[in-house]
Amino acid sequence: MTGSTTPRDLDLDSLKIVELAMRAQSELGIEIGEDDITSDLTLDQMQELLRDKRRQT
């Protein structure tokens, strides 16, 4: 797994992606929109998205 790995590369379906977003919201206290995390987003991009969301709170 590298920074360019995507959820699709990990065989995560849309339900798992939603669960991932919900867990991030719960644990980090941030709001993540339905369309923020997609199967094409890389792990590096997800990390940056989560950092940006935390800065906004």
Rank of each mutant, 00 (worst) to 15 (best):
L50K: 00
R55Q: 10
D9W: 09
I37D: 01
L50C: 02
L28E: 11
R55Y: 00
Q25F: 00
S14C: 04
S14R: 03
T5V: 07
M46I: 09
A21C: 06
I30D: 02
I37S: 02
T2V: 12
L49W: 05
G29E: 07
D9R: 10
Q47A: 15
P7A: 07
S14I: 04
R51M: 11
S39P: 04
I32H: 02
G33K: 11
D44R: 14
M22A: 14
S4Y: 11
L43P: 02
I37M: 05
G33E: 14
I30K: 02
L10H: 03
S39F: 02
D35N: 13
L10P: 01
Q56L: 13
Q56W: 03
I17Q: 01
L43T: 07
M1L: 13
E31Y: 10
Q56F: 07
R55L: 08
E48Y: 04
E31N: 14
I17A: 04
R55S: 09
R8S: 09
L50D: 03
T6S: 10
T42V: 09
Q45G: 08
E27M: 09
I37P: 00
L41W: 01
R8M: 02
P7C: 06
L10T: 06
L28D: 05
L15I: 15
R54L: 15
R23E: 15
A21V: 02
S14H: 03
L49Y: 05
L10F: 07
D9C: 09
D40Y: 09
T42D: 10
R51N: 13
S14W: 00
S14E: 03
T5A: 12
T42G: 10
G29P: 10
S26C: 04
D44N: 14
D35I: 02
D40G: 13
D40V: 08
D9P: 07
S4D: 15
G33T: 08
L49I: 08
R51C: 07
D11S: 14
K53D: 06
K16H: 05
T5P: 01
E27K: 11
D52W: 05
K53P: 05
L50W: 03
A24D: 07
D11Q: 12
I32P: 01
Q25E: 15
L43C: 07
R54A: 15
S39G: 11
I32N: 01
M1S: 11
L43A: 11
T42W: 03
E34T: 13
V18Q: 01
L43H: 00
R8E: 11
I17P: 01
E48G: 04
D9V: 08
Q47V: 11
E34Y: 10
K53S: 06
V18F: 11
L12W: 13
L10C: 13
L49P: 04
L20V: 10
G3S: 09
Q45S: 06
L49G: 09
Q45F: 00
G3N: 09
L41H: 07
T2L: 13
R54Y: 04
A24Q: 11
Q45Y: 03
A21K: 00
E31G: 13
G29Y: 10
D52G: 12
L10Q: 07
T42E: 08
I17S: 04
Q45A: 14
I37K: 02
D36E: 15
M46T: 04
E27W: 00
G3A: 13
G29I: 08
T38N: 07
M22L: 14
L49A: 08
